[in-house]
Amino acid sequence: MQEKIILGKEEIRRSLARIAHEIVEKNKGASNIALIGIWTRGAFLSKRLRNLIEKIEGVTVPAGVLDITFYRDDLKIRGLKQPGRTSIDFNFEGKTVILVDDVLYTGRTARAALNALMDYGRPSRVQLAVLVDRGHRELPIKPDFVGKNIPTSKNEEIRVYLEEIDGKDSVVIRSVEE
């Protein structure tokens, strides 16, 4: 299986810094936004974005984690795999919620996340931030903030590795056998 590195540590850092600036610009500051990361890697990315926004604006925005396991339309529960941990300990009613994920692909995860989010409350607006958009959408979903667009074929796989759980920062592409 051949692997090719698409983003290294520095590129990921710069992409996130740019996204943080774009979020602040688009929302005219950070006073009325909340970040919610989709478990697993979206959760860590949203924490990084929170720190970056804090540096830019001097405001700590609320950040939460959303597990969408029970909202998927292609669910397979794998018995021994620990389900994610949802923690949203703030009220986002009236706020703009920015959903954060590592890879945007078919759009089904984002769809599930939107449904899950609405069961927790009613945000005034929802935006979507992803580190990688690899195309092949199956649903009408469009991200607001993208780290990098990576054209892929369907028999390729994108893996995002993050320091917090993988011990390194990188995005790789590899082909998988059918």
Partner: peptide
Amino acid sequence: LEDVNAIFMLADSFYEQIDSRPIKKVPL
């Protein structure tokens, strides 16, 4: 024992996600 663990993990998640929120339902 693995089955029981899996059921407990699911119970953890359901408790965590549903118990304290207004919409006590998931579409699973």
